[in-house]
C-alpha cells in the first residue's frame, strides 16, 4: 500500500512540477543565460558520446543487414534498412538513453544536493520559485537540443553504415546505392516521427530527474539513491513510452 502511495505521490508531484514550470515560461527571456548554459550541457557535452554510439550502431546495423541479406541477394536494401531503423527507432531511443544516463543523472544529483543542503529552501525564502530558476530553463533546453542531437545521431549513424557497407569484404556496397536506398525509403515523416519521440522522451527524462532531485530528503546516501532512481525511472519510462508513442504515431 505504501509503495502504491509513493508511486502515486511521485506521479502527482511530477505533474504539478510540470504545470508550475510552464507557468513561469514567460520569464524565459530573462533567463537566456541559463537556457544557453543548459543547452550547452544537454547538447554540446552529450554530442561526442551520441556521435560515437550512433556511428557504431549504424555500422553494426549495416554489418548485420549485409550478412542477413547476402543470402537473398538483397544487399542493395542495406541503406533503406539502416536509414529507417535509425530514423524511426534507434536514433531517438539511444539518444534518450544517453541523455538519461549523462544529463538526467547530473541534474538529479545537482538538485538533490541543493535540496539536502537547503539551497532550495534558501530560494523559497528569497521568494524565487525553484521551478522558475531550476526546472523551466532545463525543460526548454531539452526541447531545443533533443531534435538537434537526434538529427546528428541519424546522420552519423547513416555515415557509419555507409562506411561499413562499402568496406566490408562480403558486402562492398557502393556508397551511391546505399544513400539511394535511404533517399528512396526514408520519408520526411519517418524523420519527424523520430524527432517527436525524442522530444517526448527528453522532456520526460528532465522532468523526472528534476522532480526526483527536488524531492530528496536526507543526506549523501539519499542523493546517490535519487540519482539511481531518476535514471532507472527514466530508462523504464523511455521503453514503455516508446511502444505507446510509436503505436500512436503509426495511427496518425
Amino acid at each position: 500500500m505504501k509503495q502504491i502511495n509513493n508511486i502515486l505521490e511521485h506521479f502527482g508531484s511530477t505533474i504539478i512540477l510540470c504545470i508550475r514550470s510552464f507557468y513561469y515560461l514567460p520569464t524565459l527571456p530573462r533567463q537566456w543565460h541559463r537556457l544557453i548554459e543548459h543547452c550547452y550541457l544537454i547538447g554540446y557535452t552529450t554530442f561526442p558520446i551520441v556521435a560515437i554510439l550512433s556511428f557504431f550502431i549504424g555500422s553494426v546495423l549495416a554489418l548485420q543487414a549485409g550478412y542477413s541479406l547476402e543470402a537473398v541477394a538483397a544487399q542493395d536494401f542495406i541503406g533503406a534498412l539502416v536509414g529507417l531503423s535509425l530514423a524511426r527507432e534507434l536514433a531517438p531511443v539511444m539518444t534518450s538513453i544517453l541523455v538519461a544516463g549523462r544529463v538526467g543523472s547530473a541534474i538529479s544529483a545537482e538538485l538533490a544536493t541543493m535540496k539536502v543542503y537547503q539551497e532550495v529552501d534558501a530560494l523559497v525564502t528569497m521568494n524565487i520559485p525553484p521551478e522558475r530558476m531550476l526546472v523551466m530553463p532545463r525543460l526548454v533546453a531539452v526541447l531545443i537540443m533533443m531534435p538537434v542531437l537526434t538529427i546528428c545521431a541519424n546522420l552519423i549513424g547513416w555515415v557509419g553504415g555507409a562506411v561499413i557497407a562499402q568496406n566490408v569484404d562480403f558486402i562492398q556496397l557502393d556508397t551511391r546505392i546505399y544513400f539511394d536506398g535511404i533517399r528512396n525509403f526514408v520519408t520526411f515523416r519517418d524523420i519527424v516521427d523520430g524527432l517527436i519521440k525524442a522530444e517526448i522522451f527528453g522532456f520526460c527524462i528532465i522532468l523526472i530527474s528534476c522532480n526526483v532531485g527536488l524531492r530528496t530528503v536526507g543526506g549523501p546516501r539519499e542523493i546517490g539513491g535519487s540519482v539511481t532512481r531518476a535514471v532507472v525511472i527514466s530508462l523504464i519510462l523511455i521503453l514503455i513510452l516508446d511502444y505507446f508513442v510509436t503505436n500512436a504515431l503509426m495511427k496518425i
Binding site: T113, M114, Y117, Q118, E119, D121, A122, T125, M126
Partner: peptide, 18 residues
C-alpha cells in the same frame, strides 16, 4: 504574504549557492 513582507532566513549551514 511572502511577497508583502521582506524577511530573510539565515540557515545554520549558510545554505549558500555553491
Amino acid at each position: 504574504t511572502r511577497t508583502q513582507v521582506h524577511m530573510a532566513l539565515i540557515f545554520q549551514a549558510g545554505a549558500l549557492f555553491n
